[in-house]
Write a protein that binds this DNA or RNA. Structure first.
Length: 277
DNA sequence: CTCAGTGTTCAGTG
DNA sequence: TCACTGAACACTGA
C-alpha cells in the first residue's frame, strides 16, 4: 500500500483528526519489532497529555510534532496504514480498497484518542513498519538519510540530471533508492518509466538529457495526480499501467502492447518493451 | 502448500 | 572505499 501518495493521504487524515487537539488516550501493542527498542510505557509517557501541533512528511515517513519532545515518527512498511474513527463509524484511510468494519482495526499497533471523541490507529499486519520516538525526526536517522521528497522537493532539471548521472545502477533501481527520490516505490517507479518511455534496465548514467527531463516530468506528474486522487487508485487515469500491472492473466496488454515482468534490483518490474526503450 | 508482495536494511561481491 | 545486489525480515492472501 504505502508509497508517497498513500502516506500523504494518511498525513492529511491525521491532520484533520489530531492537529490542535490533546492526546487523552494511548494504547500500545506489545510488539518489540514495530516499536524497535522502545517500551510501550515509554511511548505512552511520551504521548499522553501532549498536544499535536502539526503532522509532517518526508518520503514515506511521517511524524507528529508535539508540544514537547520527543516526537512520534511512523513508517508503514509494506502493509501498514492509518485508520481514523469518529463517534459514528470507522474510516479506513491510506490503504483504500477494502474497508474493514470494527474498531480498533485488526493489527493495530498504536491507538490514540483525542479530545472530542476522535481516534486514530496505526495498524500493520506484516510488522515491517516502524514506530519511533525522535527528538527531531527530520534531522535524525532514518529520515535524515533520505533524498529529495518526490512531491515537494523535486530538483530542477539540471540538478536532476546531475544526480541521476552520478549513478550506474539501472534507472529502476535509482528510482527505488530512497536516498535519491524519497517516496517512490515499486508501482510509481514502473508507472513513471512507462510514461517516460524508458526501459527499466537502462543504466541511469546512460540516459540522455531529453530522457532525464522526461523522467523528471513524469515523476512529478504521477506523484501529483496520485496525491490529488487521495491515493484512491480507482481515480487514477485509465491509461496508467497501474491498472494492469498486477493482472497475471496471460495476454494482458496496455494499449495493445504486451507487459513483461522481470526482476530488477530485487523487485518485480512490470514494463512494456514495445513502448520503453 | 507455496509464493509473491505499493519496503528497508545489511552482508557480501566486484 | 564505493556502488550495487539480493537475502532476510514477518505475515497475509491468492
Amino acid at each position: 500500500m504505502p508509497e508517497l501518495p498513500e502516506v500523504e493521504t494518511a498525513r492529511r487524515a491525521a491532520i484533520a483528526v489530531a492537529v490542535g487537539r490533546r492526546i487523552v488516550g494511548v494504547t500500545v501493542a506489545d510488539d518489540t519489532i514495530v516499536f524497535e527498542q522502545v517500551s510501550p510505557a515509554r511511548i505512552r509517557r511520551a504521548l499522553l497529555g501532549r498536544q499535536v501541533r502539526a503532522v509532517r512528511r518526508h518520503g514515506k515517513h511521517f511524524w507528529f510534532e508535539l508540544d514537547r519532545r520527543p516526537w512520534l515518527s511512523v513508517h508503514f512498511g509494506m502493509a501498514g496504514g492509518l485508520h481514523t474513527s469518529r463517534r459514528r463509524g470507522v474510516r479506513l484511510v491510506s490503504t483504500g480498497r477494502r474497508t474493514e468494519p470494527g474498531w480498533p482495526p485488526r493489527f493495530t499497533k498504536l491507538r490514540l484518542a483525542f479530545e472530542g471523541g476522535h481516534e486514530l490507529a496505526i495498524a500493520d499486519g506484516r510488522r515491517l513498519g516502524r514506530i519511533r520516538l525522535r527528538q527531531d525526526p527530520a534531522t535524525e536517522p532514518p529520515i535524515a538519510a533520505l533524498g529529495f521528497d518526490a512531491l515537494r522537493g523535486l530538483p530542477g532539471a539540471a540538478r536532476f540530471r546531475e544526480l541521476a548521472r552520478a549513478r550506474a545502477a539501472p534507472v529502476k533501481a535509482l528510482l527505488l533508492d530512497q536516498s535519491f527520490a524519497a517516496g517512490v516505490g515499486n508501482w510509481i517507479a514502473d508507472e513513471v518509466l512507462y510514461q517516460a518511455r524508458i526501459a527499466p534496465r537502462r543504466p541511469a548514467r546512460s540516459l540522455s538529457d531529453r530522457e532525464l527531463d522526461r523522467l523528471r516530468a513524469r515523476l512529478r506528474s504521477v506523484v501529483r495526480v496520485a496525491v490529488g486522487a487521495r491515493a484512491d487508485s480507482d481515480r487514477y487515469p485509465r491509461s496508467w499501467l497501474f491498472h494492469r500491472r498486477w493482472d497475471r492473466r496471460p495476454g494482458i496488454t496496455v494499449r495493445g502492447d504486451a507487459i513483461r515482468r522481470e526482476t530488477i534490483a530485487s523487485r518485480t518490474a512490470a514494463w512494456v518493451p514495445a513502448v520503453q526503450r
